[in-house]
Design a protein around this nucleic acid. Structure first.
Length: 669
DNA sequence: GGCTCCTCATCTCT
DNA sequence: CAGAGATGAGGAGC
């Protein structure tokens, strides 16, 4: 599945010359590591092939060189161990829903609710809560007490693994609440339940860097930064430490959030002008002069002391009208401060902050990507503006800024699956009979029913939970093409590029930031029947094979309650009636360029929909966590079950893994 | 407990 | 119908 498989056998990880890599470095995402010593990770990770993590070592190809931090930037986003959550997931689900009049689905999600009907809505909520509605059980569950698995010490001081775990758990809860909740603010509800149960880390306020958080990390709400200790204020823009109890004389600023909302905030990636807090006019009050207190005083003290201040840049989220993305842009120094008259005519404090040198570009890089997207500048190293020749809904750039290679070996771009005539799939799926759009909770919709009564997606883009299989509406369903249960069939949602890596052939990454759960692409190619493929599998580097052995991991998160029956747990791991083999050698899409990592940022999920009278299984790829722009997208290729049994790390057809994550098992394929 | 804060998601108006 | 403005719910920290 590599663009150039031979590149995967390059054994020396230390030969990169950082000076000749990309002009513009990709943003980093979270890169958790296990804490040293015997304290271990707070959550027990699932080892790939056995109960003991020592089994990794037999695959370890580079010996002591492996954990070097000389990791090329392109690889850094791949090094995150997949947090596995303990306690394990439990499903509240029973096979069918017992109730749920379809008329309530509109109102309970707040659609069409007239303004000023707060009391009516509260009554409505109560009524719903008394129904045997399983969605309500989810909400109830998330408001119960549960064991976070995080010790008091780990709540004070975190690490990369904890940060990643907390963020993944938060977003899993957020997605789940968004899916079943009918009130607003699933975000703050999710934060509330995690905070009250201690699912957070780095609570100790600190000046400077925060353990486990890297420059370039992205966040989709203020509360996420609060949960992992980057910026502990949910709303205030300035966070600071008070070192003397009861007095802010000695306070020091720790971090600021720049939303570009105040006048004077430049878009210069190397510096910014920040306005002090206070004095804002609200409904009942006139604007007033800002005072040298709290955050303003802390910034003033930090100017005098010269400590670095973390800066988070807020940007509009292109994927959501109201949403924002927050980019951690590293440490800045306050160079000067002054007072000037603001728009209201009142005194406003102003602080100039300058980015400290030697940090990887984050916000500046983001700005470059914006210019490429708007066509203001050309992507350096661009070979083809759209390698799909219009086969996809969005163009896919082909880029090489590392060597002279002009493109991958010839193949025919196809955005879908092709079948050999003899291939027989699973039993037919009967489509639904909805007239316009399938709605969650509507038991008359057979597609929704097969998904346990829920719409599996949010906003037409994000997968809510992993499942053994997802059912989408198919060609014979009468619902409209814009039905919310048609996601992977409607093609690419994000601006992707195929790019040349330095040592792993061609790879795939995104110009857009990807929120956890975002649909990236499906695996297109020729579906092979088993006999056909077994003969030449090892020669075909572009095969997707569900019969391989994959690292087990938990992505969903629902806390385990004490009085729960463990037998009600529904697995999230895929479960297919027979192995599925797709070859993308001759025909394929962008997925054929996605490289392997033992600690990937992308996972796959089977999706079934009806087509030509048969139910067709598709393999869809989703973002495991938030992925910053230009971070390479990788997934776990798995290991062939036949080669796994043999006691050799490099077999014919296997390739040395270069992901260099903590969990690297050394080879794959 | 009350107040503030560079919020968040939805609704309304243009 | 998109974009701006308004609105209510809401949480954390002091």
């Amino acid at each position: 599945m590599q663009g150039v498989p031979g590149f995967n056998t390059v054994p020396n990880p230390n030969h990169y010359d950082k000076s000749i890599v990309l002009d513009i470095k990709p943003l980093r995402s979270l890169k958790p590591v296990f804490p040293n010593g015997n304290q271990g990770p707070p959550f027990v990770g699932c080892p790939p092939f056995g109960p003991s993590s020592s089994e990794y070592s037999s695959f370890f190809p580079f010996g002591a060189q492996q954990p070097t931090h000389d990791t090329p930037d392109l690889n850094q986003t791949q090094n995150t161990p997949i947090p596995s959550f303990v306690p394990p997931l439990r499903s509240y689900r029973t096979p069918t829903k017992t109730n749920g009049p379809s008329s309530s689905s509109g109102t309970k999600r707040g659609v069409g609710r007239p303004k000023g009907t707060t009391s009516v809505k509260k009554k409505e909520k109560k009524t719903v809560a008394n129904e045997p509605n399983l969605d309500v059980q989810v909400v109830k569950k998330f408001s119960s007490d549960f064991d976070s698995g995080i010790s008091a010490a780990e709540r004070e001081d975190g690490n990369a693994y904890l940060v990643s775990s907390v963020l993944m758990r938060f977003d899993a809860v957020r997605r789940r609440l968004s899916q079943v909740e009918f009130t607003k603010s699933a975000t703050s509800k999710a934060a509330g339940t995690l905070m009250s149960n201690g699912v957070r880390t780095n609570m100790k306020k600190r000046v400077g860097t925060v353990p486990g958080i890297e420059v370039g990390d992205i966040f989709f709400s203020r509360i996420e930064m609060c949960l992992v200790g980057l910026h502990m204020q949910t709303m205030a823009g300035i966070d600071y430490i008070i070192s003397k109890a009861g007095s802010d004389e000695e306070s020091l600023a720790t971090s600021i959030v720049s939303s570009g909302r105040y006048e004077g905030e430049a878009q210069d990636p190397e510096s910014l002008i920040y306005s002090g807090q206070g004095g804002n006019a609200d409904k009942n009050r006139q604007a007033s002069d800002q005072k040298l207190e709290r955050g303003n005083l802390a910034l003033e003290n930090s100017l005098r002391k010269g400590n670095g201040v973390r800066v988070i840049r807020g940007e509009e989220d292109a994927a959501s009208k109201t949403g924002k993305i927050y980019i951690y842009d590293g440490l800045y120094s306050i160079s000067e401060s002054w007072v000037e008259k603001g728009k209201s005519g009142c005194n406003t404090f102003k602080y100039k902050l300058v980015r400290q040198p030697g940090q990887p570009p984050a916000f500046g890089f983001w700005k470059s990507v914006q210019k490429w997207k708007e066509g203001l500048t050309t992507r350096p190293g661009l070979i083809l503006p759209d390698l799909t020749s219009g086969a996809e809904s969005k163009p896919v750039s082909l880029v090489n800024d590392v060597d002279e290679d002009k493109g991958p070996a010839y193949f025919t771009y196809t955005s879908s699956l092709k079948y050999s005539e003899t291939f027989k799939l699973t039993q037919p799926v009967i489509g639904c009979s909805c007239s316009s759009s399938c709605s969650p909770g509507n038991l008359n919709c057979s597609c929704i029913r097969k998904n346990d009564g829920d719409l599996p997606y949010l906003n037409g883009v994000m997968l809510v939970s992993r499942r053994p299989v997802i059912y989408e509406c198919g060609p014979t369903c009468p619902c409209h093409a814009s039905c919310k249960n048609r996601v992977i069939q409607t093609g690419l949602k994000f601006r992707l590029e195929v790019f040349k890596t330095r040592n792993r052939g061609w790879g795939l990454r995104s110009w857009d930031s990807l929120r956890a759960g975002s649909f990236i692409c499906e695996y297109a190619g020729e579906v092979e029947d088993n006999g056909n493929l077994r003969g030449n599998q090892e020669e075909d580097a572009y095969v997707f094979d569900t019969s391989r052995v994959f690292n087990s991991f938990k992505w969903n998160y629902e806390p385990e309650l004490v009085d729960e029956d463990p037998s009600t747990e529904v697995p999230e791991e895929f479960n297919l009636p027979s192995p599925l083999l797709i070859s993308a050698k001759k025909f394929g899409n962008v997925a054929r360029f996605m490289n392997h990592s033992c600690s990937p940022n992308v996972f796959w999920q089977p999706v079934i929909r009806e087509g030509n009278g048969e139910s067709v299984i598709h393999i869809a790829f989703f973002a495991m966590r938030h992925i910053p722009p230009m971070a390479e997208l990788t997934y776990d290729y798995g290991i062939s079950p036949t080669s796994e049994a043999r006691d050799e790390s490099l077999l014919h057809g296997q390739r040395t893994c270069l992901c260099r994550s903590e969990q690297c098992r050394g080879s794959f394929g």
